[in-house]
């Protein structure tokens, strides 16, 4: 992986969990990304502002508190409406509802609203490297 791809790691406004953020940051850094970690409970505006500053190639939303579906929809809507980062791929992962798994409809809604990919369940982190390889190929092509 090339060393200059940038990623912003964020979560939803109500989520206080941070071990997931710290872990995902280390994980992505090992894949060569330059990571910006916004930390817990970021208001929507803060995520957008930080993304505008950092100009990431990828935005990763990690959330486990069970409100991921509700606030994840709103967050991606706002990212897609913003003038500066609306082209950046956004993905979401973690534990997204209080029931364990998303229904198929919920997952489709997240994708429809703008996420490029949704990761959940035990295989989430195992599936992640493959996605990163693909996205990196896409990003390299874009900059070429």
């Amino acid at each position: 992986m090339s060393g200059n791809k940038k990623v912003t790691i964020t979560t939803i406004p109500s989520d206080a969990h941070t071990w997931n953020l710290v872990y995902i940051q280390l994980f992505l850094e090992e894949y060569g990304f330059l990571a910006q970690n916004i930390g817990s409970c970021p208001p929507y505006d803060l995520t957008i502002r930080k993304c505008c500053e950092h100009q990431p190639d990828l935005i990763v939303v990690s959330t486990v508190n069970g409100h991921g579906y509700i606030e994840g929809l709103e967050l991606v809507k706002r990212i897609k409406q913003s003038d500066f980062v609306n082209n950046v791929p956004v993905i979401i992962g973690g534990k997204l509802t209080t029931k364990g798994r998303l229904t198929r409809e919920e997952k489709e809604n997240l994708l429809k609203e703008g996420y490029s990919e949704v990761f959940e369940g035990n295989s989430a982190i195992g599936d992640f490297p493959e996605y990163l390889e693909i996205i990196n190929g896409v990003l390299n092509k874009r900059t070429a």
Partner: peptide
């Protein structure tokens, strides 16, 4: 719940 915790 987490919304109430955050004052939302």
């Amino acid at each position: 719940d987490a919304f109430t915790r955050q004052g939302d």
